[in-house]
Design a protein around this nucleic acid. Sequence first.
DNA 1: ATTAAAATTTAGACAAATCTAAAAAATACT
DNA 2: AGTATTTTTTAGATTTGTCTAAATTTTAAT
Lengths: 219, 219
Amino acid sequence: MLNFSTSEENYIKTIFHLQNGQNTVTTNALAEKLSTRPASVTDMMKKLKAKKLLHYQPYQGFRLSNEGKKVALDIIRRHRLWEYFLAEKLKFKWDEVHVVAEDQLIDKLDEYLGYPKSDPHGDPIPDSLGKMENSEQINLAELAVNKPAEVCRVVNQSDEMLELLQHKKITIGARVEIKRKFEFDHSIEIRLRQSKRNSSDQPSFSISEQLAKNIFVSL
Amino acid sequence: MLNFSTSEENYIKTIFHLQNGQNTVTTNALAEKLSTRPASVTDMMKKLKAKKLLHYQPYQGFRLSNEGKKVALDIIRRHRLWEYFLAEKLKFKWDEVHVVAEDQLIDKLDEYLGYPKSDPHGDPIPDSLGKMENSEQINLAELAVNKPAEVCRVVNQSDEMLELLQHKKITIGARVEIKRKFEFDHSIEIRLRQSKRNSSDQPSFSISEQLAKNIFVSL
DNA sequence: ATTAAAATTTAGACAAATCTAAAAAATACT
DNA sequence: AGTATTTTTTAGATTTGTCTAAATTTTAAT
Ligand SMILES: [Mn+2]
Ligand SMILES: [Mn+2]
Ligand SMILES: [Mn+2]
Ligand SMILES: [Mn+2]
């Protein structure tokens, strides 16, 4: 299914609701519902007709095509699942979920998540006042040999970087220890451990200086 | 704090990251990072300067003002909290959260919420194939006297309507029974019960035909 | 059947965000 | 210093979504 703009989605969703029962929707009714002007509605109807989302003959009103109805149901599904989430998980009142403001939502989400200190990449999350703690993290390239540490942050988050990390199985929270440093190309040999408990060690392997410089650890 | 467009927010967030350490950010660096053209960057810089979000003299590079930094931190907070939510609750891998597509997200959300059948207003939620069940709901205005039923849907969801419902304490899931119907104005006298168990009855009260017509119940 | 009113569409304009191509300024290089 | 290169800005278009005002079509009323 193609991708539609917020504006197009609004029109589609609203037509779906208005045409319930009635077989066509009028320009004025739609303009009224969307708090916009009839001329704007006509403009958009031409666009949606061109995209085959609705049937429309000038002066004759319009109704969604089957394709348009499919899109509408997808939009409605999204909308209602989010409303359910807001009410059920974030504890908004059922009559508030329509008009939740971004700031309010984020604060409730923060509360719901238990005020996490850092995101999945290890990046610190600012609190509601904008304060962001940066704990003492050191670059993996500068970690001393044989000093166990924990991967806590990955700076470069390009696809290429993340692909490499996944392949090497380096994840946030993993325990890591440098076994050797090579002067020639500044590559380092490291060993990962499953968890803090001394479970089965993995074999050691080497990573480039470039990769190491993008990984931060805490002791 | 004012409201900014998605585009403005992208610029602000990216400048924040780029200026870490450096004291100014260059036009080309920003264009590169945003995959846009230098000319577009200059255009936006004029706009953000006008809004006092950054310091900028032509040809001299730019940096966020204190106000701009505040906005950036707010954006970063939102972004990272959502990433945390995606990873922790919706179980996306930590290296997937950057590029989650809408469809995927919604399906995971659906799963996480336990495939709810209807939203907080009682509106049915279509499944991932677009199927939407409409259970036999009857209009409260047409419910027989002394026949207990459950409020399952509210059609008109205007602020005015929701305000009235809240005042009358009529909520989705509430048990309701019509005690009398008045022919004169078609108003009805109803009584609510706390739950399905026969707990303490509330006193009965009357509602207008107009309100009743917007409420649907199931038996 | 005319005329009046209402609904709808067209014409033309505007703001936001982007682009290409050309001009201007800053830097780098003999 | 004088020229070449790079960086940045301006000028002018384009796309999307909106608007007002005027024209057109449909519907309602005499
Ligand atoms: Mn809603
Ligand atoms: Mn992140
Ligand atoms: Mn991200
Ligand atoms: Mn709803």
